[in-house]
Amino acid sequence: MTWHESNLGAVRAYEPLRRLWARQSVRWRATRFAPLSALALAWLILLLISALLDSLLSSPDAISMDLRARLRPPLLFGGNWAHILGTDDLGQDILARLLLSVRTSLLVALVGSGLGALLGTTLGFIAAHFRGWIEESVQMLVDLQAAMPFTIIALALLAFFGNSFGLFLVIMGIYGWERYARLARSLALSALGQGYTLAVRSYGAGFLRLYGRHVLPNVAGPLIVNMILNFSEVILLESALSFLGLGVQPPLSSLGTMVGYGRTYVTTAWWIAVIPGVVIVLTVLSLSILGDRMQDRLNPANRSCR
């Protein structure tokens, strides 16, 4: 037996293994889920579940004041099991308030980014469809919006019209519309150059059918990514405005309100401000990680097989 043959035997014995490995690695690559995005997803799911099950997890009296148990530190910092995350200056359980606040913040962010996506995408499609002066004016609005810091606009609106939860939601909804509009316009323009949209127009389909059924499903990827990234920005904006006292008003509470409220105690009872702050950071970070990952996955250049 020559060296070659003996080697061949080894290769033959190895072959099924190699194939298995190849197949496994392909499968692994196809379904690979980076641990970081798994963690991010787990965190968001946890947040969502706790926001949804809020009413089950904590009874209304959980946020009742207990003046005998004021400023209790969290469990690992000298606290006890009665108040895992400690209490605030009125003796309210931080965990219970956190759950309520998460619900408000998520609701605001969800409605806000949903409204923004709807408004921006519609305007972008309209601009791409009608061209001419309509497009020009949409573009002008977009540029105007992009040139002004949104926090200032929001502050001005809230200060002028007075604070109401409805107005606050609308402001959150307007936030970021110009990016959707820009994106949707350019995506629609490229889709309108494709044969299928011409064909759809050639048999006289209307605006809704053309854009709802043909254009939108084909350009949804980048819009979804933008929505995820916008979602985290809305949470941040909401927190910022609430921190300044112009956002969500008591008795409602949001993550931003909690941070703002805890600010005065930050030297003596740091957990009141830090815990909701950590939740904000983790949530925004998770959303950004997932958004980036979606962007990579939806990019046709990175897509090996579909």
């Binding site: 494709q194 044969g195 299928y196 011409l198 064909a199 759809v200 050639s202 048999y203 059924r213 043909h214 499903p217 084909n218």
Partner: peptide, 16 residues
Amino acid sequence: VQMVFQDTHGALNPRL
């Protein structure tokens, strides 16, 4: 009046 488009120009919607 109907038109036959060139297939290479994406004449069919890939999602339908």
